[in-house]
Design a protein around this nucleic acid. Structure first.
Length: 738
DNA sequence: CTAGGGTTAG
């Protein structure tokens, strides 16, 4: 910023140097002031030189001012905004000056400025862009993943014969690679007449980053065969490819390769090697390597921490965190996201809470995305809303990633309206934002809205991907939209070019199966071009339970157990089918089989959040501090239900639990009932009671919840493993279709 | 008449 004593404004532009002409500027190239510029360590010194140059008039020599501006914009000074202000004062910047600024912006947080300057350069500068211009313009296009711009610039480079310059070629290789066009990157790589180690490195890291680790390692071998000596950057690419493959053996070989060939293990390479060991799952190797590293930085420590956390060794992870000489937000994020991704959302949020006590650390977008995901898992609406408030308060802009997380959180916490509000509040929506909103409608049983949104997505020219189709098909199955489901499934590949995967087939089997079209479902399985996975047979089995088809259920169960012998869900579903048709002896022998194989049903667990605290209840739980009150409430509910003539549906009990004594009592012990009772007592009466259950809600609990919503005039929003149920005034939003 | 490209954690 120009202040009062800034050299920028304290001297008039029209200084004494009217005598400078194009013919005598060579004199200034050796001017002693210019050699000072190169030695300036910071902006302050450069500003002094700037002032001096203005006084002496040297600033009005284009060669001299260009050197000054370049020094300001580029490392180690990197004061790009100041450089830009000076640049804007110059009537006719030369190409060198343009290039300096374009280069500085290309690795700044505003790469778009490089592209804008490049376009201005084309119109305003009397020199044409040269081999020093293109690499940075291309780099800026890569940073922005602006494929279209990169294509145009590539074309211009071809026309000006600059693709003969290796720097231009190499920047094009990395540009195409970062845009995911490995095919084009390889074409540039292959068709160039010359190649150096950087060309190989760009291609190898491009493959490694683009999820083609095999190609990366193959190229690494070809490179050696062609006699090009790998350097430490090459090895970083190779290790990162190896990490992606989780190939410990090859990783160890690469390690010895580094030692044997005397490749210098700089910090980056050491970190890449460390990363390889953790990603390949060998924390022992990683620890040994880490301990002998002569120099460690925050990446080294975070890599170790994340390595432990991903193996769910949270004790070691936390020890690393506290041993770090200097913590940063990324280290905390590694812990939070691992907890969240390993299915420990409560611990994730506990760490998030602890983080807030650290005054020197601030949550960033990654923290918020992980924490929101933890809220989604838990159904912790209050905490999720708090994070949303925090985002607003901090003025954090909603990018697509965080928008998706918010929509997902609100949907999964049962507040579809808020999810929609977030969706409508943003102007830019990518495929994940659209898909998340479609998923929200789907899980709340709003199939028609989901399909409507899918149509609007086409109007916005956003191409649906595999996830979008999974979500929209699940909407069809939850709402019983058979025809629409069939149509979408049929169009997937034909119209949208998305090949149906196992998940889509499973959804389609579910759509057909629920509607009772078991024959059609079986036919579809037989016609599948890919191997039906467990989820496909599971969907068929579920449909058989719904429609009591014993023969088909047995077949589906056999197939399912072939794929997943320890899938207890398969046993439970089959025994449900037997129970439905009254084959109690088969139910019993299936139970025995399960017991003998030591297969236990996952215990039912429901949670409810009251004032920011998540309370969990297991089946028959009496460990809660308010247990007594809860059981009193349940007795009250029982008598009210009896009074209106409700008879508990014991077939659900027989289907679902193992202990067969004291059945009425056992039904009362289902975790969702405990949570509902707790909610009736402690949750604010103005708010719906929001419950999250880990399994599917049982039929009896479903009926009871409907009655309670009427008897107590309370809205109950229950999320089970498959979808949401909104109980209100004696009815459920699922219309009993679940 | 100046100058440059490829690199690791979340």
């Amino acid at each position: 910023m120009a202040t009062l004593n800034s050299p920028l404004i304290c001297l008039p532009r029209t200084h004494q140097l009217t005598s400078i002409t194009d013919n005598n500027y060579r004199i200034f190239a050796t001017h002693p002031t210019l050699s000072l510029i190169d030695q300036c360590p910071n902006l302050k010194h450069l500003q002094q030189i700037h002032a001096h140059m203005l006084r002496t008039g040297l600033f009005f020599d284009p060669f001299s001012s260009s050197k000054l501006i370049a020094a300001m914009a580029l490392p180690p000074v990197s004061s790009i905004e100041y450089a830009r202000k000076v640049f804007d004062q110059i009537p006719q910047p030369n190409l060198f000056t343009w290039n300096a600024l374009i280069r500085a912006y290309s690795s700044s947080n505003e790469p778009l400025q490089s592209l804008i300057l490049f376009l201005q350069l084309l119109y305003q500068c009397d020199e044409l862009p040269n081999k020093f211009t293109f690499p940075f313009v291309i780099k800026a296009a890569a940073q922005l993943s602006d494929y279209g711009m990169g294509r145009v610039v590539h074309g211009m480079a071809v026309k000006t014969a600059l693709t003969l310059d290796l720097f231009v070629v190499n920047s094009l290789i990395s540009f195409y690679a970062t845009c995911g066009r490995l095919d084009l990157a390889y074409r540039v790589f292959g068709s160039s007449s010359r190649r150096d180690v950087v060309s190989w490195n760009s291609m190898i890291t491009g493959f490694a980053k683009g999820d083609y680790p095999d190609q990366a390692l193959e190229l690494f071998q070809v490179m050696q065969a062609e006699g090009v000596a790998p350097n430490s950057v090459t090895m970083v690419g190779a290790f990162s490819a190896c990490a992606k493959k989780s190939d410990l053996e090859f990783g160890r070989w690469l390690h010895s390769y580094v030692e044997m060939n005397g490749i210098r293990k700089d910090l980056t390479l050491s970190n890449a090697m460390l990363d390889m060991y953790t990603k390949c799952g060998s924390l022992q190797d990683a620890k040994i390597f880490f301990d002998q590293m002569p120099e460690k930085d925050i990446v080294s420590w975070t890599t170790m921490l994340a390595g432990y956390a991903k193996q769910e060794d949270f004790g070691s992870a936390k020890r690393v965190l506290s041993a770090m000489p200097c913590q940063d937000i990324a280290a905390w994020n590694a812990l939070i996201s691992s907890y969240e991704q390993c299915g420990n959302p409560k611990e994730a949020l506990a760490v998030f809470r602890e983080l807030q006590l650290r005054k020197n650390l601030k949550p960033d977008v990654v923290t918020l995305v992980s924490s929101l995901a933890a809220c989604s898992q838990l159904g912790a609406l209050d905490i999720g809303e708090w994070i949303h408030m925090y985002i607003k308060k901090e003025g954090i802009k909603l990018n697509c990633h965080i928008t998706t997380s918010l929509i997902d959180m609100y949907s999964k916490c049962g507040d579809l309206e808020k999810a929609l509000e977030v969706f409508e509040s943003v102007s830019w929506r990518d495929v994940f934002v659209w898909s998340a909103m479609i998923a929200g409608f789907a899980m709340h049983g709003c199939g028609k809205d989901a399909i409507h949104l899918f149509m609007k997505m086409q109007e916005s020219k956003v191409k649906p991907n595999a996830v979008t189709f999974t979500n929209v098909l699940s909407a069809c199955s939850h709402t019983g939209l058979v025809d629409q489901g069939k149509e979408l499934f049929d169009q997937m590949e034909r119209v949208y070019g998305v090949a149906p995967g196992v998940k889509h087939y499973a959804s389609m089997i579910d759509v057909l199966g629920r509607a009772g079209k078991l024959e059609e479902a079986t036919e579809l399985i037989n016609k599948m071009p890919i191997t039906p996975g467990a989820s496909v047979w599971g969907a068929l089995l579920g449909a058989c339970r719904l429609h009591g088809n014993v023969d088909l259920a047995e077949q589906a169960c056999t197939k399912l157990l072939e794929l997943e012998p320890r899938n207890h869900g398969a046993y439970v579903l089959l025994s449900n089918v037997y129970a439905k048709v009254g084959e109690w002896n088969k139910v019993a022998s299936l139970r025995k089989l399960m017991r003998d194989a030591d297969l236990k049903k996952e215990p039912g667990c429901s949670s409810i959040e009251v004032e920011g605290t998540v309370h969990e209840f297991l089946v028959g739980d009496n460990s809660h501090q308010f247990s007594k009150e809860i059981y009193t409430k349940l007795d009250e509910i029982s008598s009210k239900l009896q009074a209106i003539g409700y008879v508990p549906n014991k077939t659900h009990l027989l289907q679902l639990i193992e202990e067969e004594e004291s059945q009425d009592h056992a039904l009362n012990l289902h975790s969702e009932k405990l949570a509902i009772a707790f909610g009736l007592i402690y949750a604010s009466p103005s708010q719906p009671i929001r419950i999250v259950k880990n399994l599917r809600v049982c039929g009896d609990c479903h009926s009871v919840a409907k009655h309670i919503s009427k008897l107590y005039n309370r809205q109950i929003i229950l999320r089970d493993r498959y979808r949401f149920h909104h109980f209100r005034n004696g009815d459920c939003s699922c219309m009993d279709y679940w």
